[in-house]
């Protein structure tokens, strides 16, 4: 047993050492969320393609069906803290609480969803081409939440994913007013750790799902600083209109169909924090028939506390 354990530990040292070395590769000193002169804001609905020290608080409200088709008014409050360990590697801790008000008059109920932890590695940044990309693994820890609310399952779910961002500063001069556009995207698998669960006296299967989505944003700060100063005054000169979309599809275990939303809105980026506001529009009946709303308060910790909490634990 000891021999097997040592072998396992020994085998894991190599990849761990490689990961640490990659994470410690010297960076140019650029902070995260930036690729050259392009700043990628933290979007509300879709995961960011970068690693940063940040704290995010999002509240949303929507009327829509739950997994059993029961129509509810749901208010969800979500918070997440991300900390860089190495310059390009960070971990996150998040949780959310749901307040559910059934439309049919049944009793309200509320509770926390499962706690979420994650790790992300930003493996690519190009200042010249305004590009960045990360890979990550998130985990929803089963049993840490209330089983009567969404994502409060007894089982855990692992979600490996890839995230990327691309600015359009490379466009030619005759398309210069399109340069403030940027696109971010993600593809993520959601893999339950158990194939089926025993709930309310019967077995139900836990499907694997695939999530994909992205955001298209137009940066007013980028327009005025790098394309043409058209004289847009504060506070509008710090706004970034955005349209996000996120979809999830069941891929096995007698589950099919896709649900998702399209979220048009706007973000305002200050020096130390960011605000966001989006409409949540279901894109099919399975998702719902009513428009909801999401709002964000996001702290840029690397700007607020650059010499302490806002810097990586190891490395520059």
């Amino acid at each position: 047993m000891t021999h097997k354990y040592n072998k396992k530990l020994h085998r894991s040292l190599g990849p761990a050492a490689l990961l640490i070395s990659l994470a410690l590769l010297p960076t140019s000193g650029w902070s995260h969320g930036w690729a050259g002169k392009r700043f990628f804001p933290s979007t509300l609905l879709t995961e960011d393609p970068f690693v940063n020290d940040e704290f995010s608080f999002i509240v949303g409200h929507i009327k829509g069906p739950d997994e059993d088709g029961v129509l509810n008014r749901t208010t969800n409050m979500e918070s997440e803290y991300t900390k860089t360990i190495f310059p390009n590697f960070g971990i996150s801790l998040g949780g959310n609480v749901n307040f559910i008000d059934p439309v049919n008059g049944d009793a309200d109920h509320s509770g926390f969803s499962n706690m979420e932890v994650g790790a992300k590695y930003q493996f690519f940044t190009s200042a010249r081409y305004e590009s960045l990309a990360s890979i990550g693994l998130a985990a929803s820890i089963g049993g840490t939440g209330n089983p009567n609310v969404p994502e409060g399952d007894a089982f855990s779910t692992l979600a490996p994913g890839i995230f990327f961002g691309q600015g359009f500063g490379f466009l030619p001069k005759n398309m210069k007013f399109l340069r403030p556009f940027a696109f971010t995207g993600l593809v993520q698998a959601n893999v339950p750790t158990t194939r089926e669960s025993f709930i309310d006296g019967e077995f139900s299967r836990n499907p694997n799902t695939l999530t994909w989505g992205g955001a298209i944003e137009y940066s007013i700060p980028y327009l005025q600083a790098f394309v043409k100063d058209v004289g847009i005054p504060a506070p509008f000169n710090r706004m970034i209109p955005v349209v996000e979309a996120l979809a999830t599809k069941c891929i096995d275990r007698a589950c099919s169909g896709t649900t998702g939303t399209i979220n048009p809105g706007v973000m305002w980026v200050g020096s130390y924090f960011q605000l966001g506001l989006e409409a949540t529009i279901p894109f099919n009946d399975a998702t719902g028939k009513h428009v909801g709303v999401m709002a964000q308060f996001h702290i840029l910790i690397d700007d607020v506390a650059p010499k302490s909490l806002g810097r990586p634990l190891f490395g520059n």
Partner: peptide, 25 residues
């Protein structure tokens, strides 16, 4: 179960906000 750890993290972050020298990008 998750309220207390999150509240502690939030308080710590707010404290850092208050104490930090406010310079940024």
């Amino acid at each position: 179960k998750t309220a207390t750890p999150l509240c502690k993290i939030a308080f710590f972050l707010l404290l850092q906000l208050w104490l930090a020298a406010v310079q940024a990008h």
